[in-house]
Design a protein around this nucleic acid. Structure first.
Lengths: 214, 214
DNA sequence: CCGAGTTTGTGCGCTCGTTCACAAGGCGTA
DNA sequence: TACGCCTTGTGAACGAGCGCACAAACTCGG
């Protein structure tokens, strides 16, 4: 379930505030969702709550972390060290959640050897060795669109089974490989769409209907 | 509809390949979705296809762009010029899709005046003036989590009606303001979750059942 | 022990999006 | 003009997810 990480973040915040238990409603408010949804989601993990009391914050953090596999050591490779790749390599949130940036890879040989966030940049040709040596299961693609599918294929061939794609292109992966995408400009376009709706759709519609070529 | 930007991207690719028309199935493959979904989505914009032929690529690009409001001049403010903010400010994809990065804002006065991607950094206190002077309707929050809600409130107060949040925190906005969020570590956690499922859930489940405290 | 108050876990109906399947309609050829 | 052939547009069935509402169960005070 895609909301578990949100709950986890909220729970960590509650733990820092020295809260020992939390009700489904409290967690719902902190996570920005409905309380029934929280209860239903958590019940799918097992019955970890106590009626009349709520959920034990620490225990829930442990259970959700386990469910998400955050107790395991998850090594990540970042491919493409442009602006976005640099930002990702320096992003503290990954290490904080238990992810280890084990490899940085680029095609530009002039960048090889450069240190970013304490990790040296390697060449794309060494990807397979790096993946196997560091037991990397997750690959992050931060390359230009044109290179993304090739990089993706190489990651899969090297044994990576989960890919996070930032390149603005639709990638294809074989069965058994999970693929998620984040397209920054698409997010902006969706906001633009809503702006458009807010700014008088009716007038625009009628004008278009009158002036449409056919 | 959240898929329109994906269609648009695919259509631009087809246009560059000098394709004049495209069938719903062709566009579906290029966008990674189902062809029936494509037809239903496009029919909501109006009947712009020709039976037996398909859709006119250029005309569809125009119609989707119009629907998304990409013909209008959309000015964007980026708040928080850390690693991520820098990457966003330098990201060419925004300008390419018709967004204009009109203001960069940070709280660190030592950064004020610095140029990033051709735009100077201003101080957060000048946000309202910048928003009004540049007619900014979209704000991007790339600050640490602790500062995000304050920045969000300031953006709203200044007149921004759409916000894209990269900070790992749940923001609250008044009605009429659109909010979207991108949490990079959540994406990784979702991948980790699927890795967990792939790596023998059954064995882990039984071990947990046997060793569970109660 | 008992009753009042609180909170979990879940059955049920509802809504929304997806997908199937097919009729409606345009194009090319003879 | 008449006839296949192709593709759109859409009605209808299906399924997933959401939220209400309530019974079950626990705590606390007397």
């Amino acid at each position: 379930m895609a909301r578990l990480p949100v709950y986890l973040r909220a729970l960590v915040g509650l733990a820092e505030a020295a809260e020992s238990t939390v009700s489904s409603d409290g967690l719902a408010v902190a996570s920005g969702v409905n309380s029934a949804k929280v209860r239903k989601d958590l019940s799918h993990l097992g019955s970890y709550g106590t009626r009349g009391v709520g959920y034990d914050v620490q225990f829930l953090i442990y259970q959700i972390s386990r469910e998400l596999g955050l107790n395991e050591d998850r090594a990540v490779a970042i491919v493409g060290l442009g602006n976005l790749g640099h930002a990702l390599a320096n992003y503290g949130g990954f290490a904080q959640r238990g992810f280890r940036v084990a490899a940085l890879v680029d095609t530009d040989r002039r960048r090889v050897g450069e240190q970013v966030g304490g990790v040296g940049i390697s060449h794309l040709d060494d990807l397979t060795d790096l993946v196997r040596a560091n037991d990397i299961s997750i690959g992050v693609i931060a390359t230009p669109a044109g290179a993304a599918q090739d990089v993706c294929d190489r990651l899969v061939a090297a044994g990576v089974t989960s890919i996070l794609n930032f390149a603005p292109v639709v990638l294809t992966v074989p069965d058994g490989v999970d693929l998620r995408k984040v397209d920054l400009s698409i997010e902006l376009q969706i906001l633009s769409f809503h702006e458009q709706r807010k700014a008088g759709v009716s007038s625009l519609r009628s004008a278009t209907a009158a002036g449409a070529p056919g």
